[in-house]
Amino acid sequence: MPIQWFPGHMHSTKKAIVERIPDIDVVIEMLDARLPGSSANPLLAELTQHKPGLKILNKQDLADPDATEAWLAHYQAMPGTRAIALDAGDTAPARRLIAACRELAPLRGGMVKPLRVLICGIPNVGKSTLINTLVGQRKTRTGDEPGITKLEQKIVLADDFYLFDTPGMLWPRIIVEESGYNLAASGGIGRNAYDEQEVALELLARVREPYADRLAARYKLDAAQLDARQTPVDALLLAIGRRRGGLKAGGQVDLQKAAEAVINDFRAGAWGRITLETPQQFEQWLAAAQQREAEREAERKAKRDRRSGKRRTAEDDADAS
Rank of each mutant, 00 (worst) to 15 (best):
R206C: 15
D159P: 06
A77N: 12
L203F: 11
E69G: 11
Q256M: 00
W271N: 10
V26L: 08
W71S: 03
M10Q: 14
L72Y: 00
L255Q: 13
R244G: 12
G190V: 00
G246T: 03
R116I: 09
A185S: 11
R95W: 14
T13Q: 03
K51G: 07
E293S: 09
D159T: 13
A224C: 00
G269R: 12
I155N: 06
M111V: 08
A70I: 05
P114N: 09
S128T: 09
P65R: 12
V112D: 07
S186T: 04
T140C: 13
Y162A: 07
D265A: 13
T133I: 14
M169T: 14
D254K: 09
S179W: 01
Q284T: 14
A200S: 03
C101V: 07
Q284D: 08
A298R: 08
W171H: 15
Q291C: 06
L35A: 12
L54V: 00
V207L: 14
K113M: 00
R116K: 15
Y162C: 05
R138Y: 10
R229K: 13
L104F: 14
W171T: 15
L130V: 04
K139S: 13
Y219L: 09
P79E: 00
A289R: 01
R273T: 09
I28C: 10
M78T: 07
M169Y: 02
A314Y: 08
T149A: 04
E299R: 14
R244Y: 09
R141D: 07
L115G: 07
R214Q: 13
P79D: 02
I155K: 06
K14P: 02
D87E: 02
F6D: 04
L238C: 12
A261D: 15
V156F: 05
V112L: 11
A99M: 10
A67S: 15
M111C: 00
A294E: 13
H11T: 15
E103Y: 12
A239N: 10
